[in-house]
Design a protein around this nucleic acid. Sequence first.
DNA 1: TTTTGAGTTGTTCGA
DNA 2: GTCGAACAACTCAAA
Length: 481
Amino acid sequence: MSHPGVIVWFRHDLRLADNPALHEAVQLGGPVYPVIIFAPREEGDWPPGAASRVWLHHSLASLDASLRDNNSRLLIRAGESLEALQSLLHETGARAVYWNRRYEPAAIERDASVKSRLKESGVDARSFNASLLVEPWNLQTKTGGPYKVFTPFWKAVLDRVSPPAPLPAPDRIHTPEKWPASQQLDSLSLKPSIPWDEGVRSAWRFGEQAALDRLDHFLAALIRKYDVQRDLPSLAATSRMSPHLRFGEITPCQIWKAVHQAIDGFTDNEAVKNAWSFLREVAWREFAYHLLYHFPHTPSAPLREDFTNFPWRDDAEKLNAWKKGLTGYPIVDAGMRELWTTGWMHNRVRMIAASFLIKDLNISWRQGAAWFWDTLVDADLANNTLGWQWTAGCGADAAPYFRIFNPVSQGEKFDASGEYVRRWVPELSRLDDRYLHKPWTAPAAELKRAGVVLGESYPEPIVDHAVARQQALDAYQSIKK
DNA sequence: TTTTGAGTTGTTCGA
DNA sequence: GTCGAACAACTCAAA
């Protein structure tokens, strides 16, 4: 007698390949019921933001299409996860629920409770590792604690971790005789009612195949020069894997293997070195999950306790100028507008923009983290928390407090041609390179020639960097000792 | 237990 | 224009 059926509960793993829960479910030999349950209220303080919801919509559509190519389909439910699973078990007669693990504090708590409730009623409930090279509890220092510095963590990953070969997509997903009811994707209202998402849709392709294609392109055309080119925001020279990883359209295991295969084909050492720099970045994501798991309070509180009473400023007006890309510092504004338009910001510019909010405006990293959470298509609780606490200096292995990015010199260094600023701040596009990153220094005749009226067509700087820098140093001084 | 070496991404100042 | 030092001690990880 064949297995009565298994529910595969999709969450942050919207793919068919290298999907252990799906793979194991197929092995049972009975009907497989793929389901997504939209339950934003179970995400604690971090329900998906607006940009994430747009991506989710398209990624779910893509997953459903892939499943239909395999004679299956994606069931859609909303509400409480446990209730939805119990209802599906009842409707289908299935006796098992498989899923791939998540590591955010609210998800861990929810999953643990779902698992124990299902097991109590005799259901075969199992979870798998599908999104990390090494799960947070599987790596510890020699004294038995979690890592707090990246380099030793990275060494430990290299020493002790050999990722398993990625699983293939299943050949055949067994279909039930009768499908249970499913909601329509549109009923989840993931897409905005006002069509602000056109920029996101035109900047990205969504879904598993898009992720694999993007990786191929990166390996073929970009990884050999990753070290230098990744810092130039005018080039599309980073991997752009982040949203695909966020939704589990691709796994770090698949990336790890593909990069190693690429390395095997490289003949020059420089290319190999560059490829390892990229793998190091993949490991930063692992480190972020390691930290989030071991320090689950960090999304809302600093890891370093001496920062608890840091004198952040409340300034709604300046915060708003930062969000809208109207700070008067072109590289910051370009980044914030790229974010708003495409749901993504180049990594170098993220650091500059984050440093500006924290060190120049003296506004709490939590405000920045909340805005990124809402606007990034790759919004990931582990990465977002690590990134913001790193910049603020209050996290693990953080930037020293005196490291304050100068938005002018960063712009001149990494966007020397001004191509990036001209793309996103077109009102400055006719300004000469010499003044592009500091328009307030341009002579009146030059501003006039370029059609720029400071304070009208483009803002005056909302703070003086030199003054703000000194104030930030003073504020950081105040919490010491 | 104590010691030792090291620690993503920068800027500014003064010689 | 270029270069090295200072920025500040502290914590982490391993021997």
